Structures are given as C-alpha cells and as structure tokens.
Simulated assay, not measured.
Amino acid sequence: MRLDPEIHAELDARLAAVDMRLSSRYPGDPDSRQPVHTVYVPADRFHQGLVPEWGGAALRSLSSAPALPYPESLHARVTAKLADEPIEDLRIDFEDGYGIRADDEEDAAATSAAKALAGAEVTPPFVGLRVKSMESHTRRRSLRTLDVFLDAWFGGAAELPANLVVTLPKVSDPAQVDAFAAVCGRLDAAYGIALRFEIQIETPAAVLGADGTATVARMITAADGRCTGLHYGTYDYSAACGIGAAYQSMDHPAADHAKAVMQVAAAGTGVRLSDGSTNVLPVGTDDQVAAAWALHARLVRRSLERGFYQGWDLHPAQLPTRYAATYAFFRDGAAAARDRLAAYLDRRDTGILDEPATARALAGFLLRGLRCGALDDGELGDLTADRLAGL
C-alpha cells in the first residue's frame, strides 16, 4: 500500500463542510405515517361535526350509487375506514375555497374555525389551515388570519394538535418562503410553538426560475427546516401554463413535468409529496357518478404508481375511491414485494439481483401499506412493521 495514511484526516477536513451539508439537506424520509389525502374545506363551512358528517355522506354515496371500480373483497375494508376515520388530513381553507372577504368577516371565521377545531367531535390525525399567499395583495391578510387563528386557539385550548401544519399557496420565489419562515419564528416565540408549513406548487415560476434553476429546490432550503411537504396545485398551475380548461388534469404532460421536478427536488430531504385533485365530482346521475369514480380511481392509482402517496379530495363521495384505489394498489403488490424482500434477506437466488436500495424500497412499500390500513399485521409473515422500519 502506497497511499499515505494521513490522507484520511486530510480528506475528512477537506470534506467536513460537504458532509455536514449533505446530512442536513438529505436526512431521508421521516419514519412516520403519511396521510393518503388532504381534504380541503372552506373555512366558513367548517364546524365541530364535519368529520363524521363527511364520513356519513361517503357511506351513503357508497350504498346508494353504482358499484365502485374495485374488487368486492375491499368493500368491508373501505366501509370500516369511512366509519372509523373518513378524513386523514384536514385543511381549513382561507384561500381559494374561501375567497376574499371583509377583514372583520375573515377574522370571525378564523376565530370560529380555531374554536370549532378545538371542540371538534372527531379530529383527524393530521390537520391545518391554508392561508392566503405571500403575494403583495394578500400577505397582510394571510398573516393576520394565521395570528387570529392561533390567538383564538390558545384562548381556549391547552396546546396545538401535534400534526398541525400551515399551507402556503401560490409560492413563486424562495424569498417568499424565507419571509414566511421568519414570520413562523416570531409566532413560535409569541405562542411557544414550533410551526411547520407545506408549500403549494401552483405557478410555473415555482418549478423553473428566470435564472434557469429549479426554484422548488431553493424553496426547500429557504424554509429552514420548517417545510413538511410540497403539494401540486392542478388547476392554478395548468391555467398559468396556458392549458385550456377542458384539458387541465393531474395527468396532463405539463403536470407530469412539474411533479417530476418536485420529486427530484424533495428526494431524500424528508419533505413529502402530494399530488393535486380532480374537480370532476361523483354527483348527478348513476352514469355520472360511475364515470367520476372511475376517473378518480384511475388518477389515484396513477399517482401512487409514480411515487405520490398523497393527493387532494374535495367532496365526501371521493373518499370511497380514494381508499379503494389506495388499498387495491398496496394489496395488489404486497405478495410479490413480501416474497422478493424475504428472498433478499435470506440471500436466496430468485433470478433477480436486488441491491440494498431496492430492499429499502420494498420495505417502504410494505410499511406504507400497513400504515395506511391496506394491509394487516400478520399478512406479511415475520416482516413486522418494526422490522420493515428497521430496513
């Protein structure tokens, strides 16, 4: 060996800053449950009994409408989910779903929403609110709504929900994220909390900057560790790209490009991804409901296949297809993933030469299936949730 042993210390010193930057920027996916969807409800329509109300409406749509486009074997699982936990992630919306109102009206809505959430009959495991954007004409109202909401909450409740998150819409520049993170720091100090937020990617400038860089990657850095997710905004983004209303969709090529950039920017950072929504609702005649359900189920499946494990739902009748399509996706692939991972762990020759990265992906797939309720403990043999998380 002719390499000077001192080279190791030299390289450690030379690359120390890089090592620190990489470990900080790319901590990996958090070992925790990710909701399969986010339900957006206009702030003036939110009330204490909203979650069971949506669950009841979803169950009625399931029993009175045409058959869902999924195997009958999933019916009991979907029905139980709608009865027990119909909404996984709820966002009280003060932006597009709420609109522009007088200040006193929005103040009252923010106060009412905080009190209703604090006293809700059932609280989803993940909750939050979407404020208005940091653009010049709405940012004062945005920050005021957030402050009023928090003030009302702490006036009547002990502490914020553990998974509360703020949605920041229509972000176009990393400076807006940096500014919002600074505001969160001030609110943290004022209320004794630790605010986190998600960024909505709804403008072309959020994907590709004027300087040719991927803006969304810079936004994650600007969030200073507070960003938990990137959510794709189907219709704002499509309209900004000049796509006609009849062709605006989650599966349009422009949408796929934006989401691919989001995916690369977020990979390894711990920031999670959410696809957008379809505004084709399962209402009307039996044929209309069946067509809307088929479309929604196809789009949910398509997102899952592309690594987007979360999406938006806008109507109670979309919940049956959200869960049916999600459960079918994980159950369809569970047996093959289980056998392939077991063969890798046992070092058996199956004709497929899997690497550690693939084993981690197989474990992640099965763990997501367990955490979302598609799979049950015991169905995967000795591949328990703890063992899968360890992989």
Rank of each mutant, 00 (worst) to 15 (best):
R2F: 12
L11D: 10
A13N: 13
L15C: 12
V18T: 15
P42W: 04
R45K: 13
Q48S: 15
E53R: 10
W54V: 02
A58C: 08
S61T: 12
S63K: 14
H75D: 13
A76R: 15
V78Y: 09
K81V: 08
I87M: 02
E88C: 07
D89L: 01
D93N: 00
A109Q: 06
A110S: 13
A113G: 06
K115V: 15
P124V: 01
P125S: 08
P125A: 11
V127S: 00
G128Q: 01
F154A: 09
A157R: 10
V166A: 04
P169C: 05
V171Q: 03
V177T: 11
D178T: 12
C184Q: 00
I199C: 10
D211W: 06
G212V: 11
G212A: 09
R218N: 14
G229V: 02
A240I: 05
H252W: 03
V261A: 07
G276R: 08
T278M: 08
N279G: 08
W293G: 03
R302T: 10
S303K: 02
S303Y: 02
E305S: 13
G307W: 02
F308T: 11
F308W: 15
F308I: 10
Q318K: 04
L319G: 07
A324D: 01
T326F: 03
F329P: 06
R331G: 05
D332E: 15
G333V: 05
D346F: 06
G351S: 02
A359F: 09
L366C: 07
L367T: 04
G369W: 01
L383Q: 09
R387M: 09
